[in-house]
Amino acid sequence: MSILVVLEPSGDGLKRTSYEAITAAVSCAAGAPVQGIIFDATESQVSSASIYGLSSCMIVHGPEWNQLQSSFIASAVAEAATSIDVTTVIFAANAYGKSIAPRVAVRLSAGLITDCVELQNNAGTLAAVRPVYSGKARVSVHSVTAKTVVTLRPNVFTAKQTVATSLSTSAFTPSIASDVRTASVTGHIINEGTLDVSEADIIVSGGRGLKGPEHFHLVENLAKSLGAAVGASRAVVDAGWRPHREQVGQTGKTVSPTMYVACGISGAVQHLAGMSTSKIIVAVNKDKDAPIFTVADYGIVGDVFEVLPKLATAISTVTGK
């Protein structure tokens, strides 16, 4: 199976979701080389991917490519995929992948499967599993066309290092047709000083059990002991206690961290929809019958006002934070 992975630079290397996508591609490729494409990145950033099994990477140079101009990037990815004749294109299901993958699928006349949590190579056909109906069911999906475009839910596929391969890079210059119309980025507002729930490895969320915004320091302190981001339930966001960007759940963000700690959150279906694929779930709630305990790996039945400070202290002694 010939696979092209669309990568994103970050810091000295790539985004973690890019390493996850490479790992998923390597396991599906059945020995075939996995190729990448990346926009406005350096060879040194790309070279960090060799340890994950990437064989080669096309780099589209130029600062104009660093922005999310989805029509242009989709056109370039489709051109690259056609030029090297791959059957499968893989993206992360983040804002970047969600914007570009559907356009690439249209351009390549490919089947599109988004937000996958499992990928398999079934005798040359890519089969994917994805959650539907707020995670209450899962479907197995495959493409009925020659080509497939998939996006992978972040933090579900664990990036695995392999033996470092020799990674070759080449410059790729796309030819964007003059009639392609795109939206352009004119500015970027960054949420300063806060770790975003959609990018966090650990999330500590608070709900109505905190009884008021003035008690959220209990959640923040526990988050600090874990180096975690702070999340919130819909109830407390609607009540104006916390900003919408922190909301986890159906009308907020879908997250899949290594550990999710729910404090004073009952676990309505809408909340579970946003966090049920977390690797480890911890719940603190005074109601032993709260639905959150049915999805919890570890649960503490108790008052958040008493439990959270003790939990933060006990965790700090382990983490040193």
Binding site: I113, P131, A137, S140
Partner: peptide, 14 residues
């Protein structure tokens, strides 16, 4: 361009 071959309810492995 895509086909669903199976739907299942997730099993809790918690």
């Amino acid at each position: 361009r895509t086909a669903i071959t199976a739907m299942s309810l997730p099993e809790s492995k918690r």
